[in-house]
Design a protein around this nucleic acid. Structure first.
Lengths: 205, 205
DNA sequence: CGTGTAATTGAGTAGGGTCAACGTGAGTGG
DNA sequence: CCACTCACGTTGACCCTACTCAATTACACG
């Protein structure tokens, strides 16, 4: 059981993967970095979620780095223990299998998006996902609070900070969202969905 | 147990996921398509590999489409059976967990690449991966045989057919590879690795 | 030798990245 | 309580990578 403050690292990519982790409270991100400092966010983790468990499924070292976004309390389970649980309790093993399957499908969706969708649409999708995951209702709409939100949105959707800022400004002007500091409020979710999906039902009668 | 010829579909995205599959011989691809026909290859499958098993880890429908690239023999295992195996034989469950973990790590690497690497480097990486997976040694180098190779390379690396063709032509001119019809032979793997990795060891001493 | 699919190559363009200057809002200390 | 400061965010100008569209060439097969 451990505590971390905003910006602190829980473990680094390539560290020996000794434990599986469970986030009890707070929020953190799982990232990969390039040597030149460019960062890609693989997942955002909320309270209740498991992370950094790759040691439990065959990785010798952590494949990514974990960084706390605010005050985070973490429970750590040694991988030997994890393996023992999976070997003895079929229900646990099946739960792990389902969890991994889900994450794999999500990852493959993201690959597809990065490969064929344009930036604006990827940002829209990222916003909607975030709304689902960490959004909360206010009288103005669904509010997403995220430190360094532009930067993080960029790293989640595969764009640059500048582009995200530009796109959000435009949407703000159109009244789809309210772009605030370390905050985005979705005012008209439906129109965002249109941008995110927009199956151009071409008239091929 | 079933047989398929080149271009035939084994199952489609969104079909009810009734079976897990094992490829006994031949080669096939797992793809996602957009409504406008753009295709993304998620995996290439060789003899001995498992695929289309998402039903076994919580998906109601197949999350992608499977297409045979040549003559393919396939063994199908009903998902109920799959779940029974995983529930009764811890070794099987653990093997599935490791397999999923591996694929998840691979998928996340690809996300990182798509997000931060330029096309040329992605193509180099894709070639090297393919060399590992389906390459075979000849007197000229490591040869990769793949129908519609430029198109497939494009869909694997997140580029267009034209761009792949251009890049391969250039590498051919430089003598790194031999670009042939439905075939690429890697002549100087090391130089490809340099392009793929190229950690600009900047002189910060 | 003809035909169809695969691949090459060129010209033109634009989406979005880079770089840089400038605003702005939330804490902090006097 | 106000001003200062720093991190966060916005915006503009420029440019380059890689896409689009399209014409042409090469190869393998019957």
């Amino acid at each position: 059981m451990q505590q971390f403050g905003p910006g602190e690292f829980l473990f680094f990519e390539n560290d020996v993967a000794t434990d599986a982790h469970f986030l009890l409270s707070g929020q953190l991100k799982i990232v990969r970095e390039t040597e030149d400092g460019q960062e890609v966010i693989l997942r955002l983790i909320r309270a209740g979620e498991m992370f950094g468990g790759a040691g439990g499924w065959g990785a010798a070292t952590y494949p990514a780095t974990a960084v706390a976004l605010d005050q985070a309390r973490v429970f750590r389970l040694p991988v030997q223990e994890f393996a023992r649980l999976a070997g003895h309790y079929p229900q646990f093993a099946l739960a792990v299998i389902e969890e991994l399957g889900l994450r794999l499908r999500e990852a493959e969706s993201r690959i597809r998006e990065l490969q064929v969708e344009r930036v604006e649409r990827r940002i829209a999708r990222t916003l909607l996902r975030l709304a689902n995951k960490i959004g909360h209702k206010t009288d103005r709409g669904i509010q997403i609070d995220l430190p360094q939100s532009r930067q993080h949105l960029a790293e989640l959707s595969g764009a640059t900070l500048s582009t995200v800022s530009r796109v959000l400004s435009e949407w703000d002007r159109q009244g789809l969202i309210l772009a605030g500091r370390e905050r985005v409020t979705i005012v008209r979710p439906h129109e965002l969905v249109v941008i995110a999906e927009d199956t151009v039902e071409s008239d091929l009668g």
